[in-house]
Design a protein around this nucleic acid. Structure first.
Lengths: 205, 205
DNA sequence: TGTTCATCGTGATAGGTGTCACACTCTGAA
DNA sequence: TTCAGAGTGTGACACCTATCACGATGAACA
């Protein structure tokens, strides 16, 4: 795939080096790309599709943290990779997805030699850290109704559509809540004309 | 202050460079070191004391994320500093504290020249990221009783004592809860012989 | 000593959320 | 067409937590 345009800031040398060493890989929607406790051997760059990064609870709950789209990288894989540590998160393809996997052995070299790579890594850290902060804000300070609104907005952003193809159950899972609660809150939002509800589909106003 | 022993991994050159350029600074317990929205001009290394990193809510709540002790650095200040961005968090001295402030102009140089510094930065990112993840876990999956236990354990860890000098109100603030709730839960813990309660003091079993 | 103030204990109450139960609708496959 | 299963709507109820109210206790200080 022609991925260079996703990273216009990379120097030709850097692109060539990645080209020579990285492996391109495809996942189908729903595939688990990385699971908690797994060793990390590569840094992951997303070329196409969407990856969902979430936290899993031993006694059966999950909690969405954020999405990764084209041009973004998994901060965790960068950090862990540099120390060959295990992942603390789950990553799952939300749509059919193409990624570029860069072996960890290359990381230090890239960091030292290419300023644009170094900047990219720092930017990635910063971005994910900020997202985590806003996640913390949401669960620490907001009730479920506000969290739901935030969730829907983000979902719309990532897909770029106003018709969200998603079930109440999926939302409940992502927010670590229950379907009934989400259904009721959505109903309220519909009464306030914030959304229109269809089967397996939510239309944002 | 003789701070080099806190960072035994740093090369002599690196230590000298920091020595020449960094500024040492003291804060009293309770001083606010950094506030939300403030521009960051230095990376902060903690030499002595404890710094509390927390999130503030516009409509009046706060939420403790983690502590920084001697030998640790503020990941946020590193990330922000590299792009001269504003802080998204509050930092407050929990005890009387000594820090070393390294001007951001130096950061890139340090990163490029000194492997030990580079490793230190990566380690810092990793550490704070992990702490944020466990924070998310706690508020997403746990009830207040478990969060309280976690809080007390962490508080004991940081101070290294079993007698915690802290009021119920302070705990409530850190957990974004209310004093009454904390008091009741502590009472329950006392009935289970997990703690002994004294005035302004909690004794861990 | 007596007053003041922070701290702590505890009941009553209300709201948010999770859970159970059950009915209804829509869709896709047999 | 029929049927099974997924998705949804809704009531009843329990539990956790926030809030209000008020009193008791202990520490600091005039």
């Amino acid at each position: 795939m022609n991925w260079q345009q996703l990273f216009p800031q990379f120097e030709p040398d850097l692109i060539q080096l990645i080209e020579d060493n990285a492996v391109e890989r495809s996942f189908r929607a729903g595939d688990v790309i990385m699971r908690t406790g797994q060793y990390i051997k590569s840094t992951v760059l997303v070329l196409e599709g969407q990856i969902k990064i979430y936290r899993e609870n031993p006694d059966g709950g999950e909690f969405l943290m954020y999405y990764l789209g084209p041009g973004q990288a998994c901060a965790i894989s960068m950090i862990c990779a540099l120390q060959s540590q295990t992942s603390e998160i789950m990553a799952q393809a939300e749509e059919d997805t193409e990624v570029l996997m860069i072996p960890i052995q290359l990381m230090e070299d890239l960091m030292n030699k290419y300023k644009s790579w170094y900047q990219f890594v720092i930017q990635t850290y910063r971005g994910r850290f900020d997202e985590l902060l806003s996640v913390v804000d949401n669960i620490a300070f907001r009730n479920m109704d506000e969290r739901l609104e935030f969730y829907l907005k983000r979902y719309a952003d990532k897909s770029g559509k106003k018709m969200l193809e998603i079930s109440h159950q999926q939302i409940a899972d992502d927010l670590n809540s229950s379907r009934e609660v989400i259904s009721r809150l959505l109903k309220k939002m519909e009464q306030q004309s914030l959304v229109k509800l269809h089967r397996n589909m939510i239309e944002l106003a």
